[in-house]
């Protein structure tokens, strides 16, 4: 009897209570699955990612997809209007979402999105940062940690030189970006708790 699915990866926040769990999942996966596929296609283009073992590629993507989606879809959270646009195009005010049961996670997502967007990164910088986010995902499932660490180091070095080149007198931007990594992890943990209450059969 769940009435709402307050996740912008869904086409809309409303769930038809007559629909079965499977039908709800089918509708959700129409927008969620392509978004995840896009993350995988992005990962394939990260220099060095395909050199990782297949299981490690899967583990990194499994652990990091949520955090990449948060960065990729930060613009869905409109800080000025205090609205969230779902992938189906529907726009909801913060108050409406709170009335549907949204809580701390919504506040934290807004906070994160605002700060990220305020950095005013170029597409190239955002893309490289997103690559760093993916390879910085939780490593508990990783077999060859050294190769993931080496890839992360290479990408962080590339990010630093790109930011320094484009923003010569704003060295704080690079530091702020690295500080986003733990922020993303805590968003991920908060979101995982929500997932525990949502079982897909």
């Amino acid at each position: 009897n769940r009435m709402y699915l307050v996740c912008p990866m869904n086409t809309s926040a409303h769930v038809d209570p007559q629909k079965s769990g499977h039908e709800v999942w089918e509708e959700f996966s129409q927008s969620f699955t392509p978004a995840v596929r896009e993350v995988v296609e992005f990962a394939k283009k990260i220099p060095g990612f395909r050199d990782l073992s297949q299981p490690d590629q899967v583990s990194l993507l499994k652990a990091g997809t949520f955090e990449v989606l948060v960065v990729r879809f930060a613009s869905l959270f409109d800080v000025k209007d205090r609205t969230v646009t779902f992938l189906g195009g529907k726009k909801y005010s913060v108050d409406a979402l709170r009335a549907m049961g949204a809580g701390d996670l919504l506040n934290s997502m807004f906070d994160f999105s605002e700060k990220l967007i305020n950095l005013g990164l170029s597409e190239e910088e955002m893309s490289l940062f997103t690559a760093v986010v993916l390879v910085s995902a939780d490593r508990s499932g990783i077999e060859n940690v050294n190769s993931v660490e080496a890839l992360q180091e290479t990408l962080i070095r590339a990010l630093r030189s790109l930011i320094t080149k484009n923003h010569p007198n704003e060295s704080a931007i690079f530091t702020k970006l690295l500080l986003k990594l733990p922020d993303l992890r805590s968003l991920n943990n908060m979101h995982s708790e929500q997932l525990l209450a949502f079982k897909v059969h």
Binding site: T33, V40, Q57, V58, K62, T65, E193, L196, K199, V200
Partner: peptide, 27 residues
């Protein structure tokens, strides 16, 4: 509920997308 991500069948979507071009390479 040990692994929340698998709640969404995430691993399945990822494997298929990753394997996607393996099949292409084999063709």
């Amino acid at each position: 509920f040990s692994d929340p991500a698998s709640n969404l069948g995430l691993e399945d979507i990822i494997r298929k997308a990753l394997m996607g071009n393996l099949e292409e390479r084999q063709e």
